[in-house]
Structures are given as structure tokens and as C-alpha cells.
């Protein structure tokens, strides 16, 4: 564990806490894409299948449970909690996210490190996470203006994988044989998809107004 990895995990944790804070306290999910949240729930469900079979550390297991619990509870809130569900703009959140799932599954069946059930699903979760933010970014463009909490959520979510890239660079130079092209390319694509958002986020941040 290096500082970049820890910073990445803390940034990721902060992103889910910001979103849970927004939904739980102000009982609103305005501007949040349910489809992105559903994709993330699938990402964690397929990535952490080994949570009970391979123990890495208490920290690792704890964080997996946090990400699983938060992503599924956010989906539950947005789908079934009547006060929160009312603030979900279903008309705008129309990105065909199921069209992302199948290509990622096919790609995982074609390109993976090992052809085992767990490894293919784990690889699938990497590809899916890389594109999971798309419904949210499309919703953001449609709703134009978003509240600060949602902007902070997207910023932190985009930043965490960027910190992971620094972690991979660090590990590449400090650990022999640490080469994982699939993880690296998926992580790079994922971070690059946020480039446009980061650009506007910093512009507004400098301007001191909300994200438009």
C-alpha cells in the first residue's frame, strides 16, 4: 500500500459518502443518474465476488463491504425511497446503460489475464467501471447546472482512479513483474472520460460559482 493507493481509496470513499450525504440528508437525488449508480452496483458485485474466498486484509475487506453497501443502498434509495425517488428525473436519465454491459462482457471474454469465472467477471468489472460514468455525464450535460454536492461527487469519483494510475506507476517502478496492462488501460480510459468534466469543474471552481 502506497500513498497514492491510500489517497485513491480515500477519494473513492469520500465520493460515495458525499453522495450518501446528499441523498440521506436533503432527501434528494436531483442531477444524479440512477443508471450510473446501477452500473456501479454491478461493478462492485462482479469485482468483489472473491470477498469471502480470498482474504487480503481487514482494510481490503472493510472497503469492499463499504463500496458494496453504499452502491446498493444508493440504488435502493433512488428506486424505492418515496421522498428521494420523487426527485429523480427519469425523463432526462435515459442513457441506454444496458448497451454498455454486453460489450464489456464480450470484451472480458476476449481479453483477460486468466480464463476463469472469477477473473473474467473481475475483468468485466474493470471495463464496465471505465464507462459507468457515461450516463451521469450525459445527464449532467442535459440538466446543465448541477448542485455542488453532485459536482463534488463526480469530481471525487473521477479523481480516485487518477490516483490509482499514480499508484500503478509507483508499483511498476518499485515491484518487479508488476505489469497489468488491462487494469492500466481501463483505468486510463476511465480517467480520460472525466477530462471534459474536470475542465469545466476547474473553470467554475476558479470562477467561484456552481458547476454549469
Amino acid at each position: 500500500m502506497n500513498i497514492f493507493r491510500l489517497a485513491g481509496d480515500m477519494t473513492h470513499l469520500a465520493s460515495v459518502l458525499v453522495l450518501l450525504l446528499k441523498i440521506h440528508t436533503i432527501k434528494s437525488c436531483a442531477g444524479v443518474s440512477l443508471r450510473t449508480q446501477e452500473l456501479y452496483a454491478i461493478v462492485f458485485a462482479t469485482r468483489y465476488l472473491d470477498i469471502f474466498t480470498s482474504f487480503v486484509s481487514v482494510y481490503n475487506t472493510f472497503m469492499k463491504l463499504v463500496f458494496l453497501g453504499s452502491s446498493f443502498s444508493i440504488v435502493w434509495y433512488m428506486r424505492y425511497h418515496k421522498a428521494v425517488h420523487r426527485t429523480y428525473d427519469r425523463e432526462q436519465d435515459t442513457f441506454r446503460h444496458w448497451f454498455l454491459v454486453l460489450p464489456c462482457l464480450v470484451l472480458a471474454l476476449l481479453i483477460h489475464e486468466k480464463f476463469t469465472f472469477l477473473e473474467v467477471l473481475w475483468t468485466f468489472s474493470l471495463y464496465l467501471e471505465a464507462v459507468a460514468i457515461l450516463p451521469q455525464l450525459v445527464l449532467l450535460q442535459r440538466t446543465r447546472n448541477i448542485d455542488n454536492l453532485t459536482g463534488q461527487y463526480i469530481f471525487l469519483l473521477g479523481g480516485y482512479r487518477g490516483l490509482y494510475i499514480l499508484n500503478w506507476i509507483y508499483r511498476y517502478f518499485t515491484e518487479p513483474h508488476f505489469v497489468h496492462w488491462i487494469t492500466w488501460i481501463a483505468g486510463l480510459v476511465q480517467t480520460l472520460l472525466y477530462a471534459d468534466f474536470f475542465y469545466y469543474y476547474f473553470l467554475r471552481f476558479i470562477g467561484g460559482r456552481g458547476v454549469e
Binding site: R5, D50, S54, V56, H177
Partner: peptide, 10 residues
Amino acid sequence: DDASDTKDEL
């Protein structure tokens, strides 16, 4: 090598 086997990242 075995390091790559254990998925030690999230």
C-alpha cells in the same frame, strides 16, 4: 507471479 494473483487492490 503470485503477486498478480491476489487482487490486493479495490
